[in-house]
Nucleic acid binder design. Structure first.
Length: 449
RNA sequence: GCGGGCGUCGUAUAAUGGCUAAUAUGUCUGCCUUCCAAGCAAACGAUGAGAGUUCGAUUCUCUCCGCCCGCACCA
């Protein structure tokens, strides 16, 4: 097994696989880098996170509208959004050290204006002016690396049929802004929310599910009066913290990073990265960006459609500005798993458990007969199981081994409560409930579960 | 993509140019068990894929796939 400096991360990856949360994509064929498959528990945990988000940001609010746009979009979307240009990095390679650099960055550093230059133009500039790599060696010609997955739509494989798997979900929202205005004409501010897959051909997918080539986003485009953007932005800072609280992430592990000018995305006037202390280090968990009217204006110019919003009962018109909180599902999941992963000792033995919040845990209750070779206990336990299953859904039957083993198994998958039917249950209709975190137990009536 | 290190049951480890590839745990079956991985018995389960060298390859070589560390990239 390869060296891994991070034991906690390794333990989580191992548990995730062993217990049926997350597997390497295409594993039977040797895997496919940057893809991950979700097992029975993983898909439930992931959906619980996504549903929590949907409830919190869409269902529980009056100003939010859900959409679900197609992943394949007209190629004009990506030209207008700037992705065709900016998701394509011009790279050069040092012919001696083989290190790679951004050609445009090297040229800019050397004092050249590179805006609008073709690859050939850049190569010529490098050759004519003997531009060297930072390691003082000759450079290769300029080649592109496109982060977007390209594909063709329809039977003809030519330029007109080119499309891309979306590298972000946001554009699917912007392209429907006008549709939603026509259907609802909500008062400002209002938001459009979407969950869905996005694809990026990362050079180097890394760190378990942290950076992968196919991932799921939860995004909101919140449309505001340009005059109000700062106030609304601050509100979203607060809402983001509510979200990380709801995930059960310790507040002290969530950090705000104000992203400075040059590092911001091409569309953004202000960005805060919310970072989390992952086992792999402090890394971005989600982003909050003020996108101005960049996207709507792009559409207005490229598609020739008016994007104005008219304030009701007035003649005031403007193109709304946008606050965009953008959440990565896998990163949220990884943050949840890392902060839930706990080791302690019970009776001098190491115990591993996932301290998942009740509303996120893939299994809420495990039901067991105290002994599985006593038919009367099994029958009663089955009864209790059926009642709970009907009521809560996420309930597991477990009669494996002995009671201690079952507790440990359930601990590892984060089941908050284990319900045990014993001989007294047959007399008093009470069951034992054992708490995952404290390992304490108490008795309660079956009806009160 | 470059450089370095790697790839053995689900997981964690062992061993080997030639005997049935070992141990623990797990999973499963039976017995047992009146609350925290107890015990007994049995079974299942692996050399990432392909090619080459060889009488014989999991072991040596090559290609591919994947993983780890570093670089670079990360809107």
């Amino acid at each position: 097994m390869a060296e891994n400096k991070n034991e906690k991360m390794e333990a989580i990856v191992s548990l995730a696989k062993r217990r049926g949360f997350i597997y390497q994509g295409s594993e039977v064929y040797g895997g496919l880098s940057g893809t991950w498959d979700y097992g029975p528990l993983g898909v439930t945990l992931k959906r619980n996170i996504m549903n929590l988000w949907w409830k919190m940001f869409v269902e529980d609010r009056e100003d939010m509208y859900g959409v679900d746009a197609a992943i394949l979009m007209n190629q004009k979307v990506w030209q207008a959004s700037g992705h065709v240009d900016t998701f394509t990095d011009p790279l050069v390679e040092d012919l001696v050290t083989h290190r790679r650099f951004r050609a445009d960055h090297l040229l800019k550093d050397a004092g050249f204006v590179v805006d609008g230059l073709s690859l050939d133009d850049m190569t010529r500039l490098i050759v004519d002016n003997s531009v060297l790599s930072p390691d003082k060696n000759e450079l290769s010609s300029v080649r592109t690396f496109n982060m977007m997955f390209k594909t063709n739509v329809g039977p003809v494989d030519d330029e007109s049929s080119v499309s891309y798997l979306r590298p972000e979900t946001a554009q699917g929202i912007f392209t429907n802004y006008k549709n939603v205005l026509d259907s609802f004409y909500p008062d400002l501010p209002f938001g459009l929310a979407q969950q869905g897959k996005a694809f990026r051909n990362e050079i180097s997918p890394r760190d378990f599910i942290f950076r992968s080539r196919e991932f799921e986003q939860m995004e909101i485009e919140y449309f505001v009066n340009p005059a109000d953007w700062e106030v609304e932005f601050e509100k979203w800072v607060g809402l983001v913290h509510q979200w990380t609280d709801a995930l059960g992430l310790p507040a002290e592990n969530v950090h705000e990073l104000e992203v400075e000018g040059a590092d911001r995305a091409h569309y953004s006037k202000r960005t805060i990265d919310f970072e989390f202390d992952f086992p792999i280090g402090r890394e971005e968990l989600l982003g909050l960006a003020y996108r101005t009217d960049f996207d709507l204006m792009n559409i207005q110019n490229a598609a020739g459609k008016n994007m104005d919003y008219t304030v009701k009962g007035t003649n005031t018109k403007f193109v709304p500005h946008v606050i965009e909180p953008s959440f990565g599902v896998e990163r949220a999941l990884m943050a949840v798993l890392s902060s839930a992963y706990t080791e302690d000792e019970v009776n001098g033995e190491k115990r591993i458990f996932l301290k998942l919040s009740e509303h996120l845990a893939p299994v809420k209750y495990a039901v067991s007969p105290l002994l599985k070779n006593k038919p009367e206990l099994v029958a009663k336990a089955r009864e209790v199981y059926a009642i709970l299953k009907k009521k809560h859904g996420a309930v597991m039957w477990d009669d494996n081994g002995n009671i201690g083993k079952r507790y440990r198994r359930q601990d590892e998958i984060g089941t908050p409560y284990c319900v045990v039917v014993d001989f007294d249950t047959l007399e008093d209709s009470m069951v034992t409930i054992r708490d995952r975190d404290t390992t304490e137990q108490h008795r309660t009536l079956i009806e009160e579960l």
